[in-house]
Design a protein around this nucleic acid. Structure first.
Length: 596
RNA sequence: GCCCCGGUAGCUCAGCCGGAUAGAGCAACUGCCUUCUAAGCAGUAGGUCAUGGGUUCGAAUCCCGUCCGGGGUACCA
């Protein structure tokens, strides 16, 4: 029983009966009634005036009258200008609550055998430096989108393409050989990814100094950049690596392992995971083969200097390089190979790339190239393009050291959560272990919600000077409300109060009704979040719900309510709000504490 | 230069597939804890929705111009 659908059908019928007009579903605009007016659902009648040839008020009256007669659940209506406000019977809202309370995973559509398989690629780090705040946004979005798609009935494979080869790793390797003195994560106590990152920075420092020295000696900027000893050393390592030189490959393996150990820890604290990991060192050769095949088939062309190119001018784009003149592959080459392998490994219906908007052009080109190569799934690629995280000083840049390190940020958040909890004395009854777990949970909620509540498409600002809030429109606020609800439910249980899903409440307050309406929207919200690939939709909904619940909680007694039926209704309401919050927040990768 | 994206309160963001008087949070100020968790609730103040036109019964929302900001643009991923 979906009231919106019912009303829609009857309105279409009414338009035909009254005005001989055949309306389609999307011409019937229903919205929830604004708080300042009486009613629950509002029909906008302006679009029908040209058929009724009557005033907005009269048209609304006529439609209202028709609906009142045909739909039992409509109790009353009122007309304000061209807006027809419908009052829905209390029984309907109670029925919705009862259903929501009884349905496991209310709002969620479970995947079935023949559901679409969606592969979501996210994270995709380079192995030459630790993860920073930009990666955090990527990881949280990728994980959350995956969960939202699952809740919309899709089968999801989460994947990660690790950028484990290339000149950037060779730079760290070169620096380690040259100035590392045998330093390892074990003997230095430094987390592996950070250690390798240090050598990347070290490389850049020497490289810059060498360029300065050479330009001083009269070299041009370009000559200096190409002939500095460090860059030549790094290139030599890349060449050796591609030639499978034993010593080079061994060092590469060792240093990558350090990085993976580090990443694993960061991924774990972020609470993200993958079903299948691809490594660029495996996929780039497949990409190379495909490009060479395309060359043979005349899809691409070779320049005099031996480099291979695609001509995309017919598509309104430019020329694109696919293989360098020394035969080494570029970013695009690898992505072609990775895509081919993935579609060979899985029956993918839809492929989603969670990658920043700075690469919009890249994915436009990738889809065209795959299409040219004859992969009919090329058109099924979707670039989930998200905005940058900016600092007050502008864009984050690894090489300039203006990045917010992921591990540092998390640690700081946990410290803030710990201090705040201890000041408030909230967790004094918990064991140290449990308390520490809760601090972690709260800290991550603050961070994740902060990032996910923003529209993914937009750039967002992070100011390291101001720590992320724990009050107001925040993750901890939502957790807090959940914990309050659990506390009430615990006490109900302690007092052996049975919660009865059959609802027969006499009177319902405005706040309570607001909550019922809000709960009824949850399934539609999940769908909207899925259709728009937007965790922000879930985040904002949960916030609204929680805000309304806190108002209710403030104004009404639950356990102390003398009327047994009302008390039961409020318990069902509270429990259901708790469940909805948990389901919603879990889609954002945010956990809910029993106490805080 | 060309292409793409954005501009809503002091700050961070909702609202944007056209609908009623543009909403939150933070910061500021004022109230509310002997009562289920005050990480809460209530209130005050804060707006030329960058700007100029257009379409429409109706525009923050759609279209065009201008200004400002960000990103991309043939061998870094």
């Amino acid at each position: 029983m979906n009231i919106d659908k019912t009303i829609q059908t009857i309105v279409i019928e009414a338009l035909k009966d009254l005005y001989q007009f055949e309306a389609s579903e999307n011409q019937v605009q229903l919205q929830s009634t604004r708080k300042d007016f009486e009613g629950d659902i509002t029909l906008v009648v302006f679009p029908f005036l040209r058929f009724s040839k009557k005033s907005p008020e009269t048209t609304a009256e006529e439609l209202g009258n028709y609906l009142l007669k045909s739909v039992d659940l409509i109790e009353n209506y009122n007309v304000i200008k061209g807006f027809l406000n419908l009052v829905i019977s209390k029984e309907y809202w109670l029925h919705v609550l009862s259903e929501a309370f009884l349905t496991a995973n209310y709002g969620v559509t479970a995947p079935s055998e023949n559901s679409e398989l969606v592969m979501v690629e996210y994270s995709s780090p380079n192995t030459n430096k630790p993860l920073h705040l930009g990666h955090i946004r990527n990881n949280l979005l990728g994980y959350s989108i995956s969960e939202i798609l699952k809740a919309n009935g899709n089968k999801v494979v989460k994947t990660n393409i690790v950028n484990d080869r290339g000149i950037h790793i060779c730079k760290s390797m070169y620096a380690w050989q040259k100035w590392g003195n045998g330093k390892t994560p074990e003997n230095s106590g430094i987390k592996g990814d950070h250690l390798v990152g240090e050598f990347y920075v070290e490389f850049d420092k020497h490289y810059k100094a060498e360029i300065a020295e050479l330009t001083e000696k009269g070299y041009s900027k370009e000559e200096a950049e190409n002939q500095a000893p460090s860059i030549m050393g790094a290139r030599e390592l890349l060449r050796k690596w591609e030639a499978k030189d034993e010593e080079t490959v061994a060092l590469w393996k060792t240093m990558n392992e350090w990085v993976y150990d580090g990443f694993d820890i960061t991924y774990k604290t972020l609470g993200v995971n993958f079903d299948k990991i691809y490594y660029e060192s495996d996929t780039y050769l497949v990409g190379k083969e495909e490009v060479l095949r395309g060359l043979h088939e005349g899809l691409f062309y070779r320049k005099e200097d031996n480099s291979v190119w695609a001509d995309l001018t017919k598509e309104g784009l430019d020329q694109k390089i696919l293989l360098r003149n020394d035969g080494t592959s570029v970013y695009m080459t690898q992505d072609i190979g990775t895509a081919k392998m993935r579609f060979a490994d899985y029956p993918i219906d839809k492929m989603i790339y969670v990658v920043g908007n700075e690469q919009n052009y890249h994915f436009q080109v990738l889809a065209i190239l795959l299409d040219k190569l004859g992969f009919e799934w090329g058109k099924d690629l979707y670039h989930f393009s998200y905005g940058m995280v900016e600092l007050p000083s502008g864009k984050m840049k690894s090489r300039e050291g203006t990045v917010v390190d992921a591990d540092d940020l998390v640690e700081e958040m946990v410290n803030v959560a710990r201090n705040m909890s201890q000041e408030l004395g909230k967790l004094d009854t918990l064991s140290e272990d449990e308390a520490e777990k809760t601090y972690q949970m709260i800290a991550m909620a603050a961070l994740k919600y902060f990032i996910l509540k923003v529209d993914p498409k937009k750039n967002m600002l992070f100011n390291p000077e101001e720590s992320i809030d724990f009050n107001g429109n925040t993750g901890p606020f939502i957790q807090y409300t959940f914990a309050r609800i659990q506390s009430v439910l615990r006490k109900a249980k302690e007092n052996s109060i049975h919660i009865d899903p059959t609802l027969t409440s006499g009177s319902i307050s405005q706040k309570e009704k607001d909550l019922l309406k809000r709960i009824s929207q949850f399934p539609a919200v999940i769908k909207e979040a899925g259709d728009n690939y937007s965790p922000a939709v879930i985040a904002n909904y949960c916030y609204e719900l929680v805000k309304e619940y806190n108002q209710f909680y403030h104004d009404h007694s639950i356990l102390a309510e003398p009327g047994e039926e009302i008390r039961n209704f409020r318990l069902v309401l509270s429990a259901t709000v708790g469940n909805v919050i948990k389901t919603g927040m879990n889609m954002l990768g945010i956990e809910m504490p029993e106490r805080m």
